[in-house]
Write a protein that binds this DNA or RNA. Structure first.
Lengths: 334, 334
DNA sequence: TGTCATTTTGAAATCGATTTCACCGGTTAG
DNA sequence: CTAACCGGTGAAATCGATTTCAAAATGACA
């Protein structure tokens, strides 16, 4: 029963023709007489033949595979990005190799190397940190689209959201409601998305004539999830206490919500809260959390679209930076 | 700068030896003199050579790639399963091709076919529905581990959680607290995981001497997310109203929470709620939701481990069903 | 020093496809 | 009537590795 997989040779033999002809009906890029074509198709159906994509990939140096390197697939934002990307890729006949780098530059490097070795047609990449010679040379060899964040000094496309504008809107909501002591919690680890959110926070404050007070910015220069609660607590311990908090991502938002509650404070009466990066459940907590929503699915889609268009261009279209709009969703927490 | 990628031929030439020798130092499965080895290694370093995994894959019929087909990557359970799987795979030198089937049997079929065509070494698979001749024949050709759910009549390994036991504990909690009219919401679409949860619900009722009343079971025989709110509402409209609800998954849990609130009812005083499949935010809603937690990360890990062990066995170890325990987390909603 | 066993080595076959090239027969054009 | 062209075909080269096989180099031993 479990017979060896049929090869193109077997088809040629069964159809009484040559492998060249079989290949021609397979790829359809050269004329074949109706008689031969029929014979070949019959043989294919009969033997249940499927061409080896590996052999084809070797010969054509095309694998119809896209590599994806992201930090955390359990982050709802990224999993939605991946969903969008997978859907678009699938529709165009590509598949995705998923790599999770866990914010670890070394892991990231190994994975990029591996994707290169597997000769993926392109790479979608949410960089953990700083540029390296290796990344630069890789970007020169393989079409690479950065997603969510980007390395400013890397000559390469990127698809991101309007982080600065989203944060600006969020904090503006707070200033408009009269808040003047607005805290910020987040990482400051040299990643564009987060830096831009901080920039938006500062601009909104300045627009309202409020100086940007470093004492109200609780940021950490290193990624260390276990310190998140303490970071919020320091902020709540400031006197006078901030009357509102803006968190740079939803994880900090959840931590903040918990910390504020544990401090016996009420949201939004004692401390208002606005979070960057919306979650479905933010509509269901009480109070419901106001948040900046990102078009994650569309980010994934557009990233793949841009990558596939680069595969066609091949050549020298200049790198493009696509910025998708965010949306501020006002609920009860502010 | 962007020179062609070096091949094994180039290395052989640069090192003044033959491709055979280069291959031997690469794979290390035949002795090579120290002099030649040094020369080859120097050439490799100098030219920045990396062996083509495609060519190697063709010759050795081994791709070090695992295909994963799941229903929804944005479901936190699955994304955690994938995280565990990716981590384990990465540690063993494998990578993952991720396919999302969206509960669509046709999509699933295409993806399985594609994975086969790409000659993945094995497949991890959360089946959408019923067995087919194609799946059966595929499972005979490629090592295939089912995850989360399984096709009972398919001769193949599976890694799942104790759905029946988890649901039993959840509902037992409710009966112990005196509830006698306990509603159930969920799909009943012939998928083992969900069927088993329903079975656990029934067993817990019977254990408490409560008959299993179909009027209190709001199930749908087809997957249709848009009907979820209505399904909960029918249950809440029953008179006398159920005093507790068990939902078969967390999506239904969120919908139920919303519906109960909108009906102006209080959780847990008017209606208690226990949900299968915990979410991090269930600890933060108010009331916090009691839920059955699944060891998702471990499911992913174990699945890959089992798959890799099958790649070694190759032969005829009988199919194995690994059942991991769940944990009931009691919070405020029941 | 000659023989035999043991390492090393390279030429060539192989994996399964695509593609070039030469060729054949039949129109069509000049 | 010959030249040019074109649709259709198969033999052979190619993609970039591994592996077999036989030859060459080395070492051991009598």
């Amino acid at each position: 029963m479990a017979k060896k997989k049929a090869t193109i040779q077997d088809i040629a033999r069964a159809a009484g023709t040559s492998v060249s002809t079989v290949s021609r009906v397979l790829t359809g890029n050269a004329p074949v007489s109706d008689a031969k074509r029929a014979a070949v198709e019959r043989a294919i159906a009969q033997l249940g033949y499927r061409p080896s994509l590996i052999a084809r990939g070797l010969k054509m140096s095309k694998t119809f595979t896209i590599g994806v390197v992201i930090n955390d697939i359990t982050n709802p934002f990224y999993s939605m990005v991946v969903k969008g990307a997978e859907s678009e890729a699938k529709a165009c006949g590509y598949s995705l190799i998923l790599c999770v780098s866990n914010e670890n530059p070394e892991t990231e490097l190994h994975q990029l190397q591996m994707l290169h070795d597997k000769q993926v047609d392109g790479i979608i990449f949410g960089p953990t940190g700083h540029n390296t010679e290796f990344i630069r040379s890789l970007a020169a060899r393989i079409p690479m689209i950065q997603v969510d964040r980007y390395l400013p000094d890397l000559q390469s496309d990127a698809v991101v959201v309007d982080n600065e504008g989203g944060a600006y809107q969020a904090v503006k909501l707070l200033t408009q409601r009269g808040h003047r002591r607005i805290g910020l919690v987040g990482w400051q680890i040299g990643i564009t998305s987060e830096d831009q959110r901080i920039a938006g926070y500062c601009r909104a404050l300045e627009d309202a004539g409020i100086p940007c007070d470093p004492h109200l910015m609780s940021t950490s220069p290193a990624f260390a999830p276990e310190t998140m609660p303490a970071m919020v607590e320091t902020l709540l311990a400031r006197r006078p206490r901030p009357t509102a908090i803006f968190t740079i991502n939803n994880q900090f938002g959840i931590v903040a919500m918990q910390a504020i509650r544990q401090a016996g404070l009420n949201i939004p009466d004692d401390v208002a809260l606005v979070v960057f990066d919306d979650l479905a459940v933010f509509a269901l907590t009480s109070p419901a959390i106001s948040a900046v929503a990102q078009p994650a699915y569309e980010v994934g889609q557009r990233t793949v679209q841009l990558l596939l268009s680069r595969l066609k261009d091949d050549g020298e279209a200049p790198p493009q930076l696509i910025v998708l709009p965010t949306e501020l969703i006002v609920r009860e927490s502010a």
